Computed example of a mutant assay.
Amino acid sequence: MRSIDHLVMPFDALGAARQWFMSLGFLVAPEAAHPFGTGNACVFLADGCYIEPLAIVDPAAYDAAKDEGHLFIERDAAMRDLPERPAISGLAFRSSDALADREQLLEEEAGEEGLVEFGRTMRLPDGRTVELSFRLAFAAIHAADAPSFFYCEARHTAKPDRSALTTHPNGATGIAGVTVEARDPQMFRDYLASVADSEVQGNDDGADTVPLDGGRLDVVAGGPSPLAIDSLTVTVADLAFAKKFWQGQGIAYSEAGDGVAIACPNGRGAIRFIEERS
């Protein structure tokens, strides 16, 4: 059973991403660049998960990586070329051994041969830097507009202290789950079971749930794409407090089940907020 590591959200510019997340009451980490032309400004949460707003910061390096068949960049570029971009383009699961994860997926006919390995420097709020390295393995992808499911192995021995970045003014504490839309959920049952290394459970309302370690993947029928990430669910310590915060910021939200939803500005999708349950 997998656990969520992070969600990828493509933006045209990191400045716009930073401004939007800060208006929602999130602390945003300093910007960081990847060697293949993208950069991020992450939102780290106390449960160890994070949200990764992603933008192109070095077009020459990005184009070179795409020409070389860099799997992460190929998928990102395909998403950016869509006339209607999903707000959430990828879901990364935490991995302790990306090579083993790749082999398991290939055995289940749900994986890609390609790997991505890279290192980068992370700047901490106090100005210090730490060197990070990662290995990524990828599940197969079904269409250009389908989400990229991949596995992120942190290979560095340094354990950066991100605690100063996880106390958010809106009270956000973690990621509880992700909702996926599928025109025909039955078509993707085996695939999602392999991707999550879990069992797909049917619900009385016709939706499916895929249990994760510390969260869940909900699969609902609908949407314009064969398969797409519709929303991610963030827990907050006090939902009433968060609502007052957003009202003060002029942020529009809609009631959504046991929480509220805020539409994303970078494409089709939303972030749901629910109150953390003890």
Score class of each variant (00 low, 15 high):
V260K: 00
H70A: 02
V220R: 14
L24E: 13
G215S: 09
G119N: 12
A32Q: 12
H142E: 09
V234E: 13
F11W: 15
L14P: 13
G269Y: 11
E117T: 12
Y253D: 11
Q249T: 02
S225G: 07
C264F: 10
V57S: 12
D145E: 15
R128P: 03
E255D: 15
A158E: 15
M22I: 14
L106N: 04
D97H: 06
G37C: 01
R80E: 15
A270L: 03
L192F: 05
Y50A: 04
T166D: 11
E131R: 06
H6T: 02
L217T: 01
L27P: 02
T167V: 13
L7T: 07
R189F: 06
E84Y: 11
N266V: 05
D47V: 04
D184G: 01
G39R: 06
H70P: 06
G248T: 08
E31S: 14
V28S: 10
D12C: 03
E199K: 01
Q186T: 04
G257V: 09
F36Q: 08
F134G: 04
L45N: 12
L115N: 05
L54E: 03
H6K: 03
W20L: 07
G114M: 08
P160H: 05
N203C: 14
S225E: 15
F273L: 07
A182N: 02
F134H: 05
S198K: 00
T233I: 10
D47K: 06
A158P: 10
I229P: 11
W20H: 09
E84G: 02
I271T: 15
A144N: 13
L54S: 00
T209L: 10
V234T: 13
L99P: 06
A221Y: 05
I271C: 14
L217M: 06
